[in-house]
Structures are given as structure tokens and as C-alpha cells.
Simulated scan of single mutants.
Amino acid sequence: MTVTAVRQPAVAGLFYPADAQSLRAQLAPLLHQPSLTATPKALIVPHAGYVYSAAVAAAAYRCIERLRGDISRVVLLGPSHHVGFHGIAVPTATAFLTPLGQLNVDQSALTDIAALPGVVTLDAAHVQEHCLEVQLPFLQMTLGTVGIVPLVVGDASPAEVGGVLDRLWGGEETLIVISSDLSHYHPDRIACAMDEQTSQAIERLDYAAIGPADACGCRAIAGLLWLARHRKLRAQTLSLTNSGHTGGPRERVVGYGAYVFHES
């Protein structure tokens, strides 16, 4: 495996358009709609192909569009789909590339968390991982050029993930984005019931109630909810659906939800 300073797109042309013009044309109508006026501190958004989940993700991302120029750093966390490991993986790449351009990795942030429990340097967790990559065009469309802190979460405890988030919490300049789909491959009726329970647990900040069967990014979600309790955040569900309602068959669906967290 060859690691370069700039992490190249792995799923452009598969999960989302590889052409910048087509990519902008797909996202712009979804983002330019009315949204909440409160300022979010954190988002949970799905990471499937845009044809299935972009509209759900946009329900959260359009809440931050008016904060362009105010948010300068985004901490991105999502699950590992290709590599099994313990901890929270940081890359050696100094930038991530998309069809819309390049986003630089906040090196000072990586230095700040390097000695925290669970943090490991592991490029293999990033090279083919789509869960963070599909969020980058949304960030570029809404916030422009921001620094990113890309973290792939393996087998990590809520306290380990929450500890990293707490160290990187910052102020109004920092946004946290958790990338996660919900239940996988159940019939529509069962998935809707499961995902509704997961949404209620997220709104209760009940990090112990969400496991791998409920959300592929359950460990990243748990870390955010663990910290959200300590920092007294409020969670709100903005959109909840599944692939059976966005173009896929209803016999075997993947759930998608969009959530915002506000500081009290």
C-alpha cells in the first residue's frame, strides 16, 4: 500500500459524481432549503451513496450553511468498513482530495490527541474508507475550505471516543460530524421500528442503548452521546428514512437519519 501526502478519493464516481459540476448540481438543490436557525455543535449524518442518502444528510448540513466563515475546523468520525483494529485511527496524509478540491488535515489537532488513550496512526483504515470521504463535498459546499480532523473509529469505548472529542471541542469554530448509517438489511417495517428506537436513544443521549445492529457507526455515536451528557447538549432528529423509501427495494433496507446537537 502506497501512502501519499494527499489522500485520493476512493469512491468518487461510485458513491457520488466524480465530476465537480455534476456533484455541485446534485447537492445544491438539497442544501439551498430552509433550515434551523440554532447553531449546531455536532451532526450525525448517513454515508451511503448519494442517490440513497444525500437528501437525509443535507437536512443536517443545510443547518450549517449560514456558518460559512465562522466554522474553520471539522472533526470527522466514522466506522471502519475495511480494517479491523482497536482504537481511533488518524492518517499520515496531510490533505484529503475530492472533485471539489482539497481539504487540509489540521495537524495541530492530531498532535493534541496523539497521546490520548486509543489514538493510533493507521493509514490502512483511511485509504479505502468511504464514510468520511462522502461527507467532504457537503462540507465544501456549505463551509468552503475548512481544516479537517479525519478519525476512523474501530473497537473503541465511549470514553475513548468522548475523550478525543472533548480534547478537540474548541468553540464556535469547531464542528463535530459523526458519519453513520442506521440498521442494515431488514425488511422496511422492521427497519422503521428499529431506527425509530435508535433515534429516540440518540435524543435521550443514551449511548449504552445503541449497538452494531442499530448503527454501523455506533461507537462514534456512543462517544458523542457520552460527551453530550457531560456537556449538556440537546439532540434533535431532522430526518429519518431508509433506502426502501429513496430508491431501493423494501425487502432489505439500510436506515438513514440526520441529527443535530445544540449546546444548552
Rank of each mutant, 00 (worst) to 15 (best):
G84E: 13
A93H: 14
G144P: 07
H86M: 11
V127W: 08
L132S: 03
G144F: 04
F138S: 12
G118S: 02
V120Y: 04
F85H: 12
T142P: 07
P99S: 11
G84Y: 14
V146A: 06
H81I: 05
Q140C: 00
T121D: 05
A115I: 00
I88P: 03
D123Y: 00
G87L: 14
T98F: 12
V90F: 00
L103V: 09
Q107S: 13
P79N: 05
L100H: 01
C131L: 01
H81C: 01
V105M: 02
F96V: 13
T145A: 13
L122N: 15
Q102S: 14
G101R: 03
P137L: 02
L136M: 08
L110Y: 05
S80M: 08
P79I: 02
V90K: 11
F96S: 13
L97H: 13
N104M: 01
T98Q: 03
S108V: 06
L139M: 07
M141C: 10
P99K: 09
T145N: 13
V146E: 08
A109H: 05
A124K: 06
A95Y: 09
S108H: 10
G118W: 11
T92I: 12
I113C: 09
A89G: 12
Q102V: 15
A115W: 04
H126V: 12
L132R: 03
T121F: 02
P79Y: 05
H81G: 02
L110M: 05
A125S: 08
F96C: 15
A114S: 15
G118C: 04
L139G: 08
D112G: 03
L103E: 09
S80P: 00
A114P: 01
C131I: 08
E133V: 04
I113K: 11
Q102D: 07
T111K: 14
I88N: 06
Q128L: 15
T92E: 15
P99Y: 08
P79S: 03
P79H: 04
T121R: 09
H130C: 11
Q140P: 06
V119G: 10
H86I: 00
L139F: 03
E133L: 08
F138V: 12
A115P: 00
E129N: 09
S108L: 07
G101E: 02
V127H: 11
Q107G: 12
G101Y: 04
V105E: 03
Q107F: 01
Q128P: 04
L116Q: 11
H82A: 07
L100K: 03
